[in-house]
């Protein structure tokens, strides 16, 4: 399972992005996190070659949300054979934008003294959920009404054993804010909002039937292609 940070936001476990055999002995694994309003790329570099590695640098291809390193990649020392170094690279969202397929795809180039290597990684969209994503209740009601039902996506979230208060708390620590909660015929209906770094709002209705582990998530957004990535984030947060 993932590592809980002090803020309580969910971080996926690191996965291997670049195996050593594809990068002349350099292995890169990593994950993405949002901590105190800053997006970070947590990267582990392992030298599985027989020579020392120096002169590291990193560059991103343009991507859907303008993710870009906010500082140069700095490894404190050269990487000796069999050595591992962990780095947290702060990211900004003001880099060049180009819509990627899938939307959350990030193409990365890493250089060292041996060569330049390329890999792709998929970031969870919740790293883009900003801290001021709580929509005014009146605006929520108007926006919900305004977005046509064709733009509504509905999903089932299965095997989730949390009550609605636990769900609200868990989501809030990931910048998904519950604006209203209603109980209708025994079901809890949570109305929630979140906002992406590029200003796109996402409105959600989460139905929880007491005693049932299956939730219904309805999402309304003016950019409906985002919905499936929001679902992935809900599932990761609620099941970890």
């Amino acid at each position: 399972s993932g590592v809980g940070m002090p803020t309580g936001s969910y971080v996926l476990p690191k996965t291997v992005w670049l195996p050593a055999m594809k990068a002349k002995g350099l292995e890169i694994s990593g994950t993405f996190a949002r901590r105190m309003g800053t997006i970070q790329m947590d990267v582990t570099f392992t030298n599985k070659a027989m020579q020392i590695m120096t002169d590291f640098a990193i560059q991103f291809n343009r991507n859907s949300f303008g993710l870009s390193p906010a500082a140069p990649l700095q490894l404190a020392t050269p990487l000796s054979p069999n050595q591992t170094i962990e780095v947290s690279l702060p990211l900004s969202t003001v880099g060049p934008v180009m819509k990627m397929d899938p939307l959350n795809n990030l193409q990365v180039a890493v250089k060292n003294n041996i060569d330049v290597f390329y890999f792709s990684s998929l970031y969870p969209i919740n790293i883009l959920f900003v801290e001021d994503g709580k929509m005014e209740r009146q605006v929520f009601l108007a926006t919900w009404k305004d977005i046509p039902s064709d733009n509504e996506a509905q999903f089932q979230i299965k095997d989730c054993h949390l009550n609605s208060d636990a769900v609200s708390n868990k989501l809030q620590s990931n910048n998904i804010f519950t604006i209203a909660k209603r109980n209708v015929e025994g079901q809890d209906m949570l109305y929630q909002s979140m906002k992406l770094t590029n200003g796109i709002w996402i409105l959600a209705e989460l139905r929880i039937q007491p005693g049932s582990p299956n939730f219904t998530l309805s999402l309304k957004c003016r950019a409906p292609e985002i919905a499936q990535f929001v679902l992935q984030s809900y599932e990761a947060m609620l099941k970890n």
Binding site: R137, Q138, L141, W144, A180, R182, V184, E185, Q187, M189, Y191, E205, S218
Partner: peptide
């Protein structure tokens, strides 16, 4: 929370979603 007159509106939304 301050009653801003929207409580009823959310109740209506929830009701309508449950019985479309």
């Amino acid at each position: 929370e301050i009653d801003d007159g929207l409580d009823e509106a959310f109740s209506r939304l929830a009701e309508s979603r449950n019985n479309p």
